[in-house]
Amino acid sequence: MKKIGGSLFILLAVLCIFGCNKKENNNKTNSDTMENVQVSDYGVTAKGDSIKKYTLTNKNGMKVEIINYGGIITSLMAPDKNGKYQDVVLGFTKPEDYFNGNPYYFGALIGRYGNRIANAKFTLEGKTYDIDKNDGPNSLHGGKEGFHTKIWTAEPVKDAKLPTLKLTYVSADGEEGYPGKLTTTVHYTLTDDNALEISYEAETDKATVVNLTQHSYFNLSGNFSNLITDHELQINADKFLPVNSTLIPVGEEKSVKGTPFDFTAAKAIGKDITAQDEQLKLGGGYDHNWILNGNGMRTIATVYHPASGRVMEVMTDQPGVQFYSGNFLDGKFDTKTGGKYEKRSGFCLETQHYPDSPNQPAFPTTELKPGQKYQTKTMYKFSVKK
């Protein structure tokens, strides 16, 4: 019996060692995956909610920082032509400035409806819905308490091959006046070719309207005291949507040819921005939707900053993009590099459906019904030109 007991003890010991080593190896694999997504404390809201920051890092050393408040991108480090990494997205220097309304929507996920809805109302299936009026007579970016002010459930995706953060938010039926309980999931993925991929999904239990987007401001110079007027922009669009005095599309699709809105060939953002054009006067610069050429996932815009050599390509499957030249930045907030965020110190390229689509039947529909899934994807890819 002693001999048998000794043999069993040896066998169990061997199995334990094997099993423990296997478990240790599994844990090591998970740890290696999670090394690409670091979690840290970011700040505490006025209501006492603790906000986390998630840092995604790819194999090249490119980093993007995201907080679960508003799904906000607070930093994006991209290399220049000399290999120097600098932050290229505008953002606040203090967490409380994000938590106190984020008046410029810096870096935020936007919903339920990106851009403007005229007179803060729309009719769906015979019923009129009044939504939050937060932009003169209109509703902008989902209302004052839109998705940019919500605390999202965030979790790094452990089994992903690339650093990926999953964000989820459930919007109650009637929130900000919108019908239906809407469950939204967004994945941020940082690829090994220096692209930030943003995938959106949403489902509802009642007919509603949805138009999600991302509202990062970019300045590829890496110095936020510099204006973006020297950035060279190309937009793959032959038409844009003229607007009225409250920046609502008038329903006309206008050719960009022969206008300051022609970016079919790359040109400096500042080249025509002060031209004597009624649409530029109404927007205080560029703040319009371009009707994108083509369908499906394609490159819709390219931005080049000659001094740094940085290039940003925008890819999407959406029908439109709002090019906004930072006209309402007003020097009230400190930049992350010193100085103030002045007018035109950043630009946005917000991929989207058209503004005011719920009130304009000729525009592509933004209606989402129960049983349907809203799905869209946008990528911001960074490279250099020497």
Rank of each mutant, 00 (worst) to 15 (best):
E197K: 15
L11Q: 07
R310N: 01
H141L: 10
G346I: 09
K206T: 15
G101C: 05
Q234G: 03
N119H: 12
E313I: 01
P319R: 01
K84S: 11
G346M: 08
F224W: 00
G126K: 10
T168F: 02
L280F: 06
D205H: 12
S225P: 01
I131N: 02
A172I: 11
S199I: 07
G143W: 02
T191M: 09
G309F: 07
L349A: 00
Q276D: 15
Y380M: 05
G114R: 03
N244R: 12
F218C: 01
N211D: 15
G331C: 13
N211F: 14
V89T: 15
L212F: 09
N100F: 04
D159K: 10
A307G: 04
P103E: 04
T57C: 07
N60Q: 05
N194R: 12
T204F: 08
E145F: 10
K381D: 00
Y217A: 00
S75P: 00
K377Y: 01
P163W: 03
Y69P: 03
V303L: 07
A108I: 08
C348Y: 10
F333A: 07
S383G: 11
K386D: 14
N359A: 12
Y354I: 06
K47T: 13
G71N: 06
G146L: 06
Q372E: 15
I300A: 12
F99R: 05
S50I: 02
D356I: 02
E201I: 00
T149F: 00
G143T: 05
A13P: 00
L167Y: 03
